[in-house]
Amino acid sequence: MRQRSTFLFTTLAFGYAFLYLPIVILMVYSFNDSRIQSVWNGFSLRWYASLLDNAQVIDAALLSLQIALISATIATVLGTLAGLSMTHMGRFKGRLLFTGLIAAPLIMPEVITGLSLLLVFVSTEQLIGWPESRGTMTIIIAHITFSMAFVAVIVQSRLSTVDKSLEEAAMDLGGRPYRVAIDVTLPLIAPAMVAGWLLAFTLSLDDLVIASFVSGPGANTLPMVIFSKVKLGVAPDINALATLIITVIGIGVVIAGFVMQRRERARITEYQATR
């Protein structure tokens, strides 16, 4: 038994070192005064300072945030509706196809999704003159499309744990289906919707390939700017930018994780008490 736990402990240690070491090293080197990564020239914040002067990076970051906010919000609405129709609407025409369409974006290689979305925009432009030009709008649509699938999966798994008798009770008391959804279902799945929104938000912030396909001239998101720089090799100011982004997201996720875990525990006690 002892032998086995040592083995498991070692795997964990190596596994987590593998997952985290590169990021930690990158963060450390972001404070390196030297332009060349391999030489440690002493602690400095110069790369952080240079980021502030980099209008291209700041514009791209603002654009990415804007796109992520809008697309995450719409994706949460659509993904929640999709989750509802999978769990609450019984049989409907084309349900099987719908199930497939919801799950496919989760694993579809990004190059395919990106290429096909671009081609649809080009075709509609030819046919009906929309969209007039590609850019922010088309990136938002593309991001909604793939992130709504993630929201739908999260919401759906939460919906399947919602006690059906609560919704039936609301209906029995005179609530019409849409009122029941608003009064009972949505409050019960709210944490899943928040989690879905956060995931959609980060997926949008992070996406490079799909945005590269559907973007037009002038609309450069943050990952696009970063990618065009790092394609040429390691860049110290990108180290600084990466440190900032990873720290902000990391802290955000950890806080969100703890808040949700607490609420989850509260929910479970609440739920068990009502059984």
Binding site: D163, S165, L166, A169, D172, V184, E270, A273, T274
Partner: peptide, 20 residues
């Protein structure tokens, strides 16, 4: 007629009291 249009109410074994 759907449940919300019937002059009938139901109480189930689990009580289904809205937890929120």
């Amino acid at each position: 007629l759907p449940p919300y249009q019937r002059p009938v109410n139901m109480m189930v074994q689990s009580y289904a009291v809205f937890p929120h």
